[in-house]
């Protein structure tokens, strides 16, 4: 075996990614319930609760009792969602929120910008990782995309159109311009992770989905009927911003040309329609590691460099490379065919 074999754990990062997505999503469901429980506690209302409300009270009490003394105060430690949240006093916000608010007010409000600083720094290093590892909408979109492949397997025709990936940069620019024109952060209304965070909270704590859910269902149908992961690939303003911020990201995926056999499974599995087979990762790769996980010859690994490797040509285990080099190296080719 070769010395530049990728570290064995990289193949399993995709599972870790699903754990991360599930935990974020579960938190978004849990937090509104915790909030409702807090309000029951604050009102000293247990005796007046309906049976279903008592059930919520009981479950949440069981879950939190080991960790908190006074639920009404201590459970305030984690609030919010991925759009903007508070973690033990540390406020973190989505960079798109910072840019959207800057556009809406046409001023920079520094205390808020500081909350977006950590996510921006992480994006500069790890690229569009938010899209693959944290985004609560990605969790649903990927399940939706699995559902689409079941439908395809069952013989139902599913849309698989391709558009220009640069459309989303236009959506980002248009969203910021509209935010500036209306003086309100309108971009939050077309950004799925912000919508999901809010709508789960509305549904659980306020008692019904809002208008954002209609938009989100629309994007799900668009993904299902028109283009696979169409919203993320072609339309998402947040994805556009993250792609721009992560253009010169340090951590990127690299193809090891010596062990690649041109099977193209990486291209098939890539949710963002990128081209790992020809070293075409670009700024839109979100380091989701699905291609690393599926590669049958362990030919994909991480590299630390600010730009992609230039195209390395066909993989050395592939048919094309072998036929091109067979004339010059017949004995080696025969050796490989025998093996």
């Amino acid at each position: 075996m070769r010395s530049d074999q990728p570290f064995f754990l990289w193949r399993h990062l995709n599972k870790l990614r699903w754990v991360s997505l599930s935990v974020v999503f579960a938190m978004l469901v849990l937090l509104p319930y915790l909030h409702v429980y807090q309000t029951y506690v604050a009102a000293h209302a247990y005796d007046l609760l309906a049976p279903s409300e008592r059930q919520v009270y009981g479950v949440m009490e069981t879950l939190t009792q080991p960790f908190v003394g006074d639920p009404a105060e201590d459970l305030d430690a984690i609030k919010g969602n991925t759009w903007s949240g508070t973690f033990w006093g540390l406020k973190l916000s989505d960079p798109l929120a910072a840019f959207g608010q800057m556009a809406a007010g046409l001023t920079i409000y520094w205390p808020f910008w500081l909350t977006a600083l950590i996510p921006i720094a992480l994006t500069v290093v790890f690229g569009r990782f938010f899209c693959g590892w944290i985004c609560p909408a990605t969790f649903i979109y990927e399940l939706n995309s699995n559902f689409a492949s079941w439908l395809r397997w069952a013989g139902i025709k599913i849309g698989n159109r391709h558009f220009d990936k640069r459309i989303k940069y236009g959506v980002l620019a248009l969203g910021l311009i509209l935010s500036a024109a209306t003086g309100s952060v309108l971009i939050a209304a077309i950004y799925p992770p912000a919508i999901i965070g809010r709508e789960i909270y509305y549904a659980i704590a306020i008692g019904g989905f809002g208008a954002g859910m209609m938009f989100f269902i629309g994007t799900l149908l668009f993904d299902l009927l028109v283009a696979r992961r169409g919203f993320c690939r072609y339309l998402c303003p947040g994805g556009a911003l993250y792609s721009l911020l992560g253009r010169y990201r340090l951590l990127r995926i690299r193809r090891i040309v010596e062990t690649c056999n041109d099977c193209a499974k990486c291209n098939a599995v890539c949710e963002f329609d990128l081209d790992p087979l020809r070293d075409g990762f670009g700024q839109e790769c979100n380091n989701c590691t699905a291609c690393i996980a599926i590669c049958p010859t362990n030919a994909l690994t991480f590299a630390i460099r600010p730009t992609d490797y230039p195209a390395q040509g066909p993989g050395h285990l592939g048919r094309r490379y072998r036929s091109e080099h067979a004339a010059g190296d017949e004995s080696a080719a025969e050796h490989r065919e025998a093996a």
């Binding site: 609030k79 759009w83 949240g85 916000s93 952060v185 809002g210």
Partner: peptide, 26 residues
């Protein structure tokens, strides 16, 4: 006007409200 320009619609005020009096416009 300033409020609309500042608010990013994150919903944390509602989640912090112990009285559940804060609702959100559709």
């Amino acid at each position: 006007a300033d409020f609309l320009a500042r608010c990013i619609n994150c919903g944390q005020c509602g989640e912090a409200c112990p009285n559940r009096c804060i609702k959100y416009f559709s």
